[in-house]
Amino acid sequence: MRRIVSVLLENEPGALSRVVGLFSQRGYNIETLNVAPTEDPTLSRLTLTTIGDDKTIEQITKQLNKLVDVVKLVDLTEGSHLERDLMLVKIRTGAEQREEIKRTVDIFRGQIVDVGPEIYIVQIVGTGDKLDSFISAIGYAEVLEVARSGVAGISRGDKILSV
């Protein structure tokens, strides 16, 4: 089962490597990983998605909690939550495809954020599924490059992950 785990991490050198190292050391997999500072400069927020059965996920959260650099964590998939992944796609496009691509981007509520003589760069935000669907929807065009941010997530309502 797919899980989204969000972690508040001490913004210290080496903290990220402890988290990533834990996953390889204990044979857990990471599907996506997203990490950036928060409004509190001493903390980073790391969100990762992983796939495992309940027992594995329980061990992952316990082992993460044991890391001294991990201040707090939450399994977002336990409750109602929002998740967003941001994707930038560089597409080669001749004049005859431009309109069709623009329409597809609109359907996915994306934006064309850069234009060149034969290039579009498209930005799409949404769940991983939505981003995958976009890629298959423009299967007729030549996708040159894809950059995804990995999933960032947050609980709905008044449930808060903070110190």
Binding site: P13, G14, S17, R18, G21, Q25, V68
Partner: peptide, 16 residues
């Protein structure tokens, strides 16, 4: 040393 010992320590520090 921090990297080499990472999986076998409770915690580690490099003094800055």
């Amino acid at each position: 040393m921090i990297g080499v010992s990472r999986p076998i320590v409770k915690h580690s520090f490099q003094v800055r």
